[in-house]
């Protein structure tokens, strides 16, 4: 159960990577740090300002979405079209800044905040499940349903899909591609915030929790880096593998299982499970 819950979190972060990658071909190495920031903003709203949990959650998601939008509009738009290396370095640098900023504002001591799920258990037919795990799983499913509906039924969602598939064609159809990209960043930051808030009752929040994002890479790669269901599935697989390795493997395997799985997938199927990147056309 624990593995699945943690896997859901990986999946959600991976989903954020994939959303951005599919649309803009940028890989956001600061995705984990966006999650961290989301958790801290929620902490401030709930524990600091005393807002009720649900209101705080919504507020944090909205604040992070606006932050994501601005991030793209201000920092990333100028580097569109530059080599991928530049973008990778840019987002890594961004991660450093976010981490330091969070440390500066909220301090480096781990924090926790009360949620309706903290520390309770549910007894379902003899199986004891922690509510926080249930909340994570339920939250992930709900979020996916919302995202699915969004991409399927709203104009904005369809425009985002179109821009992801073919920037130029979308542009010619009158879709403001640059603004759509910023919206995708907003969406991705919002998803990251949800992941951070869901994770909060399980782990303590501190500025370095963003490093979790690197394991989410493993999830994204496992799922083929271009597929949203793939990312979630990859997250679950990584979460469960990690849990199993931690229980049955030699010491240290809990920490390395995700990376070993990642390397294995990359070596055996270099394009991920659903190959997306092909050879450059000449």
């Amino acid at each position: 159960m624990n593995g699945i819950a943690v896997g859901c979190i990986y999946g959600l972060i991976a989903l954020g990577f994939v959303l951005i990658y599919k649309a803009t071909e940028m890989v956001n190495f600061a995705q984990g740090d966006l999650m961290m920031l989301g958790a801290f903003v929620a902490y401030t709203l709930i524990s600091g300002l005393g807002l009720p949990y649900w209101l705080g959650l919504a507020g944090a998601v909205i604040i992070m979405a606006v932050f994501g939008y601005l991030l793209d509009a201000v920092l990333l738009r100028p580097v569109i079209g530059q080599p991928q290396f530049a973008i990778v370095m840019l987002t890594i640098g961004l991660g450093f800044i976010l981490r330091a900023a969070a440390g500066f504002i909220w301090g480096h001591d781990p924090l926790s905040f009360e949620t309706p799920f903290t520390g309770k258990v549910v007894n379902a037919g003899g199986v004891v499940i922690a509510t926080e795990n249930l909340a994570i799983i339920f939250g992930t499913v709900l979020l996916c349903a919302i995202l699915y509906a969004f991409f399927r039924f709203t104009r904005l969602g369809v425009a985002m899909q179109a821009s992801s598939q073919n920037q130029l064609a979308a542009y010619y159809m009158g879709i403001p591609v640059k603004r759509i990209f910023s919206m995708i960043w907003a969406l991705s930051a919002g998803v990251a915030a949800v992941a951070g808030i869901l994770l909060a009752p399980k782990f303590l929040i501190d500025p370095n929790m963003g490093f979790l994002g690197i394991k989410a890479f493993a999830a994204a790669v496992l799922g083929g880096f271009g597929s949203i269901p793939g990312a979630l599935l990859g997250g679950l697989v990584i979460g469960v593998i990690e849990q199993i390795a931690g229980v049955y493997g030699p010491p240290g395997s809990h920490e390395t299982a995700a990376y070993l799985a990642l390397l294995l997938v990359l070596v055996l199927k270099p394009g991920g499970i659903f190959a997306q990147i092909g050879r450059k056309k000449v």
């Binding site: 370095m89 840019l90 890594i92 640098g93 981490r99 330091a100 480096h108």
Partner: peptide
Amino acid sequence: QTPGLEPALFGVILVFFIL
């Protein structure tokens, strides 16, 4: 006294150079 000063500066410089 903030411990994160150094990495933060590294990050800022990295972003600055790439932009």
